[in-house]
């Protein structure tokens, strides 16, 4: 179950170019409780690489990236601390 947690918060960065989706994620991850999941919606292809890279650098957990039917991705991040 842990890997399929419903996001506690959705960050809508559709139409925004990197690094803006990463800046929004960094600002908002502390708004959810520990171990909760934030979903970043983005359609800049750079986000698919940059969100997991941010997780690695900031020691949060990249849960998975899922293609959205309308284009773009939902990239799920678990708050680790």
């Amino acid at each position: 179950m842990t890997e399929t947690t419903q996001p506690a918060l959705t960050v809508d960065a559709l139409g925004k170019k990197c690094p803006i989706p990463i800046i929004m994620l960094a600002e908002q991850i502390n708004h959810v409780p520990l171990n909760a999941v934030v979903a970043v919606l983005a359609d800049d292809p750079a986000a698919v690489t940059d969100v997991p890279a941010w997780c690695r650098l900031k020691s949060h957990r990249h849960v998975g990236s899922y293609e959205l039917p309308e284009g773009g991705w939902a990239i799920h991040v678990r708050r680790n601390y």
Binding site: D44, P45, T49, D50, P52, A53
Partner: peptide, 17 residues
């Protein structure tokens, strides 16, 4: 192009900045 470098993507490192 609108895509970041395929090298940085393949490595899985930060592509912006």
């Amino acid at each position: 192009t609108l895509r970041p470098s395929h090298v940085l993507e393949a490595m899985g490192v930060l592509t912006h900045g």
